[in-house]
Amino acid sequence: MLQGCAEIHAALKEGTLPPYLLATPLPADLGQALLRLPREVDSGVVARAGRLTSEAGATLVRRLEARPEPVTSVERPTAPGGRPRPRVRQEPTGMAFVDALFCGECGR
């Protein structure tokens, strides 16, 4: 929600607000949709997505073809009474929304 508001605010400042905002998907919407993709997709789906000509379509195809699995782990505390800390790492996708969620330690 905050990411969407930030996109609207930036578009207002730049004078590039779409004419029908409620019907216009934003980059945050695309990122959320890509997070909901199933792990396995039929090759026909990838082929149909490949016929899309928009940048969002190209992003979808890249995500469908190269789906790196996130690396999950649990950091165990060394001090008594410390709590285990879950870690989820994934290679950067280039989508700010997704990378903010899963790449807090990308490149480390």
Results as ranks from 00 to 15, higher is better:
His9Asn: 08
Gly94Lys: 04
Thr72Gly: 08
Pro86Leu: 06
Leu12Val: 04
Met95Cys: 13
Ala58Ser: 10
His9Pro: 02
Asp29Ala: 08
Leu60Met: 02
Ala28Gln: 09
Ala66Tyr: 14
Leu34Val: 06
Glu7Thr: 02
Arg87Gln: 11
Glu69Met: 12
Leu52Gln: 11
Ala47Asn: 10
Thr93Ser: 15
Leu30Pro: 00
Leu22Pro: 03
Val88Phe: 08
Pro19Leu: 05
Val45Pro: 02
Gly82Leu: 02
Arg51Pro: 03
Asp29Phe: 02
Pro27His: 04
Pro92Ala: 14
Met95Ile: 15
Pro84Asp: 15
Thr24Tyr: 14
Thr59Gln: 10
Arg87Tyr: 09
Glu7Cys: 02
Arg76Asp: 04
Glu7Asp: 07
Ala96His: 08
Leu60His: 00
Cys103Ala: 14
Leu60Ser: 00
Arg85Trp: 11
Ala33Thr: 10
Asp99Pro: 01
Ala56Gly: 10
Cys106Lys: 08
Ala33Lys: 04
Arg67Asp: 06
Ala11Arg: 00
Arg108Cys: 08
Ala58His: 14
Glu7Leu: 02
Thr93Pro: 01
Ala47Trp: 15
Glu65Tyr: 13
Gly44Asn: 13
Leu12Met: 15
Ala66Val: 10
Gly57Ala: 10
Arg51Asp: 13
Thr24Met: 06
Arg83Gln: 09
Val61Ser: 02
Phe97Pro: 00
Pro25Tyr: 03
Leu17His: 01
Ser43Gly: 11
His9Ala: 08
Tyr20Gln: 12
Ala79Cys: 08
Pro68Arg: 09
Pro25Leu: 03
Cys5Glu: 09
Gly94Trp: 05
Thr78Pro: 03
Gly81Ser: 09
Glu55Ile: 12
Pro77His: 04
Arg76Ser: 05
Arg89Gly: 08
Gly57Pro: 01
Arg51Cys: 12
Arg108Gly: 09
Arg63Val: 04
Arg85Lys: 15
Ser73Leu: 13
Arg36Met: 13
Arg108Ile: 08
Arg67Leu: 09
Arg51Ile: 05
Leu64Trp: 01
Gly4Glu: 10
Ala23Lys: 15
Arg48Leu: 14
Ala49Asp: 01
Leu101Phe: 07
Ala28Leu: 11
Phe97Met: 12
Val98Met: 10
Gln32Ser: 09
Ala66Pro: 03
Arg87His: 09
Gln3His: 10
Arg48Cys: 06
Glu75Met: 13
Ala58Phe: 09
Gln32Ala: 14
Arg108Ala: 15
Val41Thr: 12
Thr93Glu: 01
Arg62Gly: 03
Pro68Thr: 05
Leu37Arg: 10
Ala11Phe: 00
Arg51Met: 13
Gly94Glu: 06
Ala6Trp: 13
Leu26Gly: 00
Cys106Gly: 05
Leu17Ala: 06
Gln32His: 12
Val98Ser: 02
Arg63Ser: 03
Met95Thr: 03
Arg63Ile: 03
Val74His: 07
Arg51Lys: 10
Gly4Trp: 05
Gly57Trp: 01
Thr72Ala: 11
Arg85Leu: 13
Arg108Lys: 14
Arg83Ala: 09
Val74Thr: 11
Pro77Gly: 03
Leu21Arg: 06
Gly104Tyr: 10
Thr53Asp: 12
Gly57Glu: 02
Ser54Val: 12
Arg51Gln: 11
Gln3Val: 08
Ala11Lys: 00
Arg89Leu: 08
Ser54Trp: 09
Glu7Trp: 01
Leu101Asp: 02
Gln90Asp: 05
Phe102Met: 07
Arg87Ser: 04
